[in-house]
């Protein structure tokens, strides 16, 4: 039990090193992969229904002024959402090195 927990903590910290951050902290135009959607089941289901899943590739398309929403494009399903900052902050992503263009 405690072994497993240790393992998970270790994994989590290695994730952090690999540049894991929320959608709020990523630069515009670069490609990221969704790692996890935090927050309650309501928000989680909503995003799933809108076609935002773990493993999808996303990129930040823009943001509004004064703490307004961010514009996120899902490259996997080719859709675009405006997400409030609170919500964008709950989506964890990691950088994708080779986009394979």
């Amino acid at each position: 039990m405690s072994e497993a927990e240790k393992q998970r903590i270790k994994e989590a910290s290695s994730e952090l090193k690999a540049g894991v951050c929320s959608l709020l902290e990523v630069p515009q135009g670069e490609v990221f992969r969704i790692l996890e959607i935090k927050g309650g089941p309501g928000l989680h289901r909503r995003l799933l229904a809108l076609g935002f899943h773990r493993g999808d590739l996303v990129t930040l398309d823009g943001e509004a002024l004064m703490g307004g929403p961010v514009l996120v494009r899902n490259l996997t399903t080719d859709t675009r959402l405006a997400l409030g900052r609170g919500i964008a902050g709950k989506i964890l992503v990691e950088p994708v090195k080779d986009v394979g263009e």
Partner: peptide, 10 residues
């Protein structure tokens, strides 16, 4: 309010 989730169509 859970915040904005709004699809931006093309």
């Amino acid at each position: 309010s859970p915040g904005l989730i709004l699809e931006i169509p093309e």
